[in-house]
Amino acid sequence: MAAYSARGVHGQVVQSLGARIVGGGMSEGDILDVRALGEELDVSLTVMRESLKVLAGKGLIDARQKRGTFVRERRYWNLLDADVIRWRVEGGAGEQLMRDLADVRSIVEPAAAHRAALHRSDADLDALEAALAAMGRARSASADAADADAAFHRALLAATGNEMLARMDLLLTPGLRERDRLVHSHASVDDPVPSHRAVLDAVRDGDAARAELAMLDLLAKAARDLDRLGAAADDPSPARSPRRTAG
């Protein structure tokens, strides 16, 4: 059961119910019969209660006196939570979610690259270089590739010298990981290292305008990868072996 399978029965219940809610198997306002769900999933009420606390923390459910436990309206869901993102992808909303992420990145990351070129430290450059080296070593579609990609973008945000911008990694990283998983699995795309290298070189040179343009080019390439993903989904022919993607 994906990431939660390693966390035992409690995690499996969270996975099962979370995916059901986010995927539309339960509608907003639906009342959860906790006892019946426990019997269905073959777990104790104690496990159910602890699992429901996790889902409540993600904004998916709530409990009120005289009403019981119910599915909350979507506007209360923590859409930036890594599990909620994954459940949305599993429920078929992956492409739209990735396009929403691309919009956010187009606003944040070119400006971050511009600022990083002006404020980066030697330690920031070392972190970017290390992430790029890890990206070059990683196998396509591997967890290491996703980790290296996320590390590069996290280091770039940190290089801005702005603590609030640096914390934008909490918003971007979960989506980036799902994006990597989706694109690596379905699209034949080019080596991501050159596009990331162009950003790093401009940041290293302190050339803010060039860094911003390099990030815009990287994001344009990422958008083309998503277009290939959509085309592959519509193409009934056998999929090609995936290659790495810019992220």
Rank of each mutant, 00 (worst) to 15 (best):
V14K: 12
S142G: 08
A3F: 13
G59Q: 11
P194G: 05
A220L: 04
H186G: 12
S44G: 07
R72L: 11
F70M: 00
V108K: 01
I21T: 08
A246L: 02
L97W: 14
M98C: 07
E178L: 07
V71Y: 07
N162K: 04
Q65H: 11
K58M: 15
G206C: 05
A56H: 03
S241D: 10
R105M: 06
R64I: 03
M26P: 10
A233V: 09
G230S: 10
D201N: 10
Q12F: 11
R154N: 00
A63K: 13
L172S: 04
R74M: 05
A102V: 02
A113M: 02
G94S: 08
K221H: 08
L128F: 02
S27R: 14
L218W: 08
A187H: 02
Y76C: 03
T46Y: 08
A146Y: 00
M26K: 14
A231I: 09
N78P: 01
R115W: 01
S185V: 01
N78M: 11
W77S: 05
L172C: 03
G11V: 08
D126Q: 12
L41R: 02
S140P: 15
A150M: 05
A123I: 05
N78I: 04
E50Q: 15
L176D: 05
S241N: 12
G136D: 04
L213A: 15
G91H: 10
E90D: 11
A3D: 07
L182S: 06
L165P: 00
L55S: 06
V84F: 15
L170P: 00
M215R: 06
G59H: 11
L101E: 14
I107W: 11
E28L: 04
A166K: 01
H119N: 10
L52C: 07
L200D: 00
A82V: 14
E28K: 09
S44I: 03
G57W: 11
